[in-house]
């Protein structure tokens, strides 16, 4: 298939996954917020910006860190390329640029979602609490996954879509786990006490993992087990290991036409083999969760870069702001063609 289309498929997967995960990150917050008397407003919202790596952009757009601004920034703002609406808009545009490649159902779904959200206002989101909005987004994203799984040919395009989804999910599951590091407990004595447990529980819920946890590890929340579920479980669809199983499988199925593609596969396989080992939650907690997560995330990012370089073969020249350099004149030339509406 066309390299550009492969890349668009991959990006489509990323956009959908990112949109969903931003709402999941906010969900953790919403749930932890029930214990809000322990925290100042800053304590609650700053971690959101840390996890989404968007503090600088936020500060350039807003004067104050508060609920309203955070919601606007993470959910709606078109100035934030990672906001939920920006991502869904980008997903819809990507789908539009290759609608002959995805199923009609997938396109209709994304297009309708886009139309339904186009004019939404902040007060409509905050009125009922962001929970309802977040649920709506998560339904949109998971309906998309269902449609992709059941209406699209599981050929190359689909595999690139899955690569995009699972690599981003791996990264984001790890970042959600990181919340535990950013939202600090009032004091060290709280470790293992109700508030601490409550936070782990909220975190589990936000990755739809609370039920899975109960099935596998019974009702008692043990932090090391939560880490085992999110990083090492082989059956839980948002775990790091599950994601890497998928990534490795799809890389293998896509084939390795040249040396570089072979290297990408080897790299992913190595990573997976480590995740397949013993569940090391306890050791990780002892040695430092944050440090471990940083290493893990770096491996995901490396893998993404390797895939970019070895599968998509793009020549994109960026300007200082990180925008594609020729995009403006491209648009202009595209519009000025004689080929127009009848």
């Amino acid at each position: 298939m066309l390299s550009r289309v492969a890349y668009s498929m991959y990006q489509l997967g990323q956009h959908i996954e990112r949109a969903e995960n931003v709402t999941r990150i906010l969900d953790v917050n919403y749930r932890m917020g029930f214990e809000v008397e322990y925290f100042s407003e800053l304590d609650v919202w700053l971690p959101m910006l840390a996890i989404t790596r968007s503090r600088d952009l936020f500060d350039s757009l807003y004067d104050e860190v508060n609920e309203e601004n955070i919601y606007d920034f993470l959910l709606l703002s078109d100035k934030n390329p990672d906001s939920v609406l920006s991502r869904l808009h980008a997903a819809r545009e990507a789908a539009r640029s290759m609608r002959e490649r995805i199923s009609e159902e997938m396109w209709n779904h994304l297009n309708q979602a886009h139309l339904g959200l186009a004019n939404i206002r902040l007060n409509q989101v905050t009125y009922a609490g962001s929970y309802t909005f977040n649920q709506r987004i998560q339904t949109i994203c998971n309906t998309f996954h269902g449609l992709a799984a059941h209406t699209m040919v599981h050929g190359k395009a689909w595999k690139f879509l899955r690569l995009g989804i699972f690599l981003d999910r791996a990264l984001m599951s790890s970042r959600i786990l990181e919340i535990k590091y950013h939202i600090v407990l009032p004091d060290a004595d709280e470790v293992g006490r109700p508030l601490d447990i409550h936070q782990w529980q909220a975190l589990l819920r936000s990755v739809s993992g609370y039920e899975a946890y109960r099935r596998m590890y019974k009702a008692k929340i043990i932090p090391a087990q939560v880490i085992n579920l999110i990083l090492f479980n082989q059956d839980f669809p948002r775990s790091m290991r599950y994601c890497m199983e998928q990534v490795t499988r799809h890389l293998q199925a896509l084939g390795k036409t040249h040396q570089g593609q072979h290297r990408v596969y080897t790299q992913a396989k190595l990573f997976l083999d480590e995740l397949r080992g013993n569940e090391r939650g306890e050791i990780i907690l002892r040695e430092g969760l944050q440090q471990h997560l940083q290493t893990t995330q770096q491996r995901c990012v490396d893998l993404q870069q390797q895939i970019m370089a070895n599968y998509f073969d793009l020549l994109i020249v960026m300007d200082d702001q990180g925008h594609e350099l020729s995009l403006g004149s491209q648009m202009q030339q595209q519009q000025q063609q004689r080929d127009m509406m009848p």
Binding site: Q334, Q335, D339, M341
Partner: peptide, 9 residues
């Protein structure tokens, strides 16, 4: 195609 910005895309 010229691309998605063309009216006949």
């Amino acid at each position: 195609t010229p691309g998605t910005y063309n009216a006949a895309y």
